[in-house]
Design a protein around this nucleic acid. Structure first.
Lengths: 201, 201
DNA sequence: AGCTACGGAATGAACGTTCATTTTATTCCG
DNA sequence: CGGAATAAAATGAACGTTCATTCCGTAGCT
């Protein structure tokens, strides 16, 4: 290879680096203080850039929040539903997704916290909301299929079932985060089984 | 009449009216726009008073939010747990409390919405948080008793069980409020039964 | 008249955003 | 190749706006 040749066609911009640094910093400070609670200069300092630099990559705080939301949403969905083995029994795949959800809250607490945050909702634009709906659709279809197979109780609509399970999980994690109790593996498994009971009647 | 005692014992004019008007207005506008989303002049206009008048009754926005929170918390608890007939079976009293919760969301939607709001939490002081804990304690004791009696599943701590049920309910109502679906009586009863299944295994 | 409650303009702090300037990277000749 | 010229990126102090809170002239009751 022509080792002495300069990277004529690859003038690597560390542009991507700063953008990523800003998003990472935003995840951290927003998860902790809420979107409304964190001024842009504080975000800039956490990211290690000047305040004005943020506006080279995101035209406003609102745009920044939306792009962050979408990236994290994609990450979460990929993480939860990738490589779901079709040969698993319904109960096994329920357990697997449950386990992945818990892992997400443990391994990416800032991302989970940010997604769970309510105070960014007024910022969310059409695109972000659409993405949210699209993420829900396949899960809903999965619930319906299990109902048709007689696994899940059929006296309740799939949307309602999903809302119950999701709410139960989110509040479980929040209660722990708020210091009401701490969860060991036995608690987490028991909660999973209880939610399974909710679905199957 | 005795004019002397009249003036002496009447240091309280219709003060109570304005205070109440402000709290009622706060409930309405905060429920809709969030605490951070509503400027004091807007609250003043809704209450039909001048901006400065608010500060005659509440020394700051924070104090106002806390007093409102505590009053609504008392109302909610009275409403949920008053006159609970001891002769009811566990399942019947579960159904009764569930019914009262739903009634609360229907009849006092602004109050419910405000209590459910997350963005007032940074404002809450020690007293408000203490009151919250005190409100939870008896319910927790009730859950424990039902576990000892073998009604509720015992493989899971009462705090965890409560967090799951509460989260499920709150998210059910929120999903409806967000327009994901609307709930008829059959849905509500089915959700109640599903949550009962969660508790009993 | 005297006193208190009231209203809403005035005030200052805090925020998101901008922009004149500095720093860093790239290009262009000799 | 080297170093000046040019362009691009980065910076943070300054700007305009918004908000909670204060202040002071006025209205109403006794």
């Amino acid at each position: 290879m022509n080792t002495h040749s300069k990277t004529a066609t690859a003038p690597r911009p560390r542009i991507k680096d700063k953008r990523t640094a800003i998003l990472q910093a935003a995840l951290k400070v927003f998860a902790e203080g809420g979107v409304n609670g964190v001024p842009m200069p504080v975000l800039a300092e956490q990211a290690g850039v000047g305040t004005g630099t943020i506006y080279r990559y995101f035209s406003s705080k609102e745009v920044l929040v939306n792009e962050l939301f979408r990236e994290e949403k994609l990450n979460l969905n990929k993480r939860l539903y990738a490589n779901l083995d079709k040969s698993l029994t319904p109960k096994e795949s329920f357990a697997l997704v449950w386990e992945r959800m818990v892992a997400y809250t443990r391994e990416a607490p800032e991302s989970y916290r940010f997604m769970e945050l309510q105070d960014h909702r007024p910022y969310l634009d059409e695109q972000s909301r659409t993405m949210e709906h699209e993420a829900i659709a396949p899960i809903l279809a999965y619930y319906r299929r299990l109902q048709e197979q007689g696994v899940y109780r059929e006296d309740i609509r799939a949307e309602v079932l999903m809302a119950l399970i999701w709410g139960a999980f989110v509040n479980l994690i929040r209660a722990e985060r708020d210091g009401l109790f701490s969860l060991d593996q036995a608690d987490i498994n028991a909660a999973r089984d209880a939610c399974w009971s909710l679905c199957t009647g």
